[in-house]
């Protein structure tokens, strides 16, 4: 009986186990929402993430009225603006809030998707800040939406870099051993001896700030984690009977590695990737917070949080929402990673 057959039989079982875990569902929900928002950021965001409105600086989240001027039901908002002295002024007039409205045109996915449709908007010369505005009068909701895209791309690219370098290094290192293993593992140990965030900071300091460099730095910081993980799996797998059998039949190394060993080492890699997404997003936000990541006015969550901190006493919402966004996305990936680990654990069920 080959190992591949048995893993095919267990596939539905782990899936069932995953879907029965409420934490996994919560993780899926957070991640699903996050990916959806990132994928359709300009549609969900009512405004541009960088457009300033100095007359609406750090306006708190706005209230929605459910009765119109003549008492008719619906969603209505008032104009809220700030006087030079810092007081809030709430307008008298009510403007209707509508869904699927035409607004600022946008293009997304590198120009593949072009439209001027937005999920919601105000019918009138008034801006509606669902989650409030920041110190430049920029809509926090819109910034969070576009920021989701930034976080998602950082996470995906960083994990991709980690996979692309860490997995081959781990495979070769574990399979062949010898001098290569010795050298590669010493490098990995040096990298692992630094806390990940410190390694990322050092790398960004060397490469220079900016989003691209953050992706590269966070990706590099993930390499040793994968290299170590994959090497461990390979070390145990290469001694197993099905590998021995295939080798006895004269399979070349490449076939052994990619047909027999790698597929069986996949589950820890998948679990690690989910956790690593959370780590990458947190690192990127951390770097942004320290001023080493995204540059203003990019709507990167960590940067938004850092800016909002200065207004904690007067306008707590500016820091709260980016903080919550980071928390929920990191939590989502962590929950999913944990649930995947439980579900894929061969010792269970």
């Amino acid at each position: 009986m080959s190992e591949r057959n048995s893993s095919q039989q267990t596939a539905p079982r782990w899936r069932r186990r995953l879907l029965r875990n409420p934490l996994a569902i919560a993780g899926f929900a957070f991640i699903g929402l996050f990916v959806l928002v990132a994928a359709f950021a300009p549609f969900i965001a009512p405004y541009s993430p960088v457009e300033q409105n100095l007359r609406g600086t750090y306006v708190p989240p706005m209230r929605i009225e459910f009765r119109g001027p003549e008492g008719q039901p619906g969603l209505w908002v008032r104009e809220v603006s700030r006087t030079p002295l810092g007081q809030l002024e709430v307008g008298e007039e009510l403007y209707p809030l509508r869904f699927f409205v035409r607004g600022e045109p946008w293009s997304w996915w590198g120009g593949l998707l072009k439209s001027d449709l937005h999920l919601f908007g105000v019918d009138g010369p008034v801006k509606f800040y669902l989650l409030g505005a920041d110190e430049q009068g920029r809509d926090i909701l819109s910034r969070l939406c576009y920021g989701a895209w930034i976080s998602l791309s950082i996470g995906l690219i960083a994990v991709a870099i980690g996979l692309a370098v860490g997995v081959p290094v781990g495979l070769l290192s574990g399979y062949y051993g010898g001098t290569f293993d010795l050298l590669a593992q010493r490098v990995v140990e040096v990298m692992l001896s630094f806390p990940g965030i410190l390694l990322a900071i050092v790398l960004v300091a060397t490469l220079g700030t900016g989003l691209t460099n953050v992706m590269i730095a966070v990706g590099i910081a993930a390499i040793p984690v994968y290299a170590r993980l994959v090497r461990g799996s390979v070390l145990s797998l290469r001694e197993r009977e099905f590998v021995e059998a295939s080798r006895a039949l004269g399979s070349p190394d490449g076939r052994l590695l990619f047909r027999h060993i790698l597929p069986n080492a996949l589950s820890p890699i998948i679990v690690q990737s989910s956790l690593q997404m959370a780590v990458a997003i947190l690192f990127a936000a951390g770097l942004g917070f320290l001023g080493l990541g995204a540059r203003p006015p990019e709507p990167e969550w960590g940067l938004m949080l850092a800016r909002g901190r200065e207004y904690l006493a007067t306008a707590p919402h500016v820091a709260t929402f980016p903080g919550l966004a980071i928390m929920f996305v990191a939590l989502g990936f962590n929950l999913l990673g944990d649930a995947l680990r439980d579900a894929l654990d061969p010792r269970r069920g």
């Binding site: 960088v50 300033q52 100095l54 110190e135 430049q136 540059r295 203003p296």
Partner: peptide, 23 residues
């Protein structure tokens, strides 16, 4: 200071100037 620069950056964007801030 940095807020003023960001406001300037945003106003420049309105006339089509793409400015990057370096601190």
């Amino acid at each position: 200071d940095i807020r003023v620069t960001e406001a300037v950056q945003s106003q420049l964007r309105a006339v089509g100037v793409q400015a990057q801030i370096q601190t």
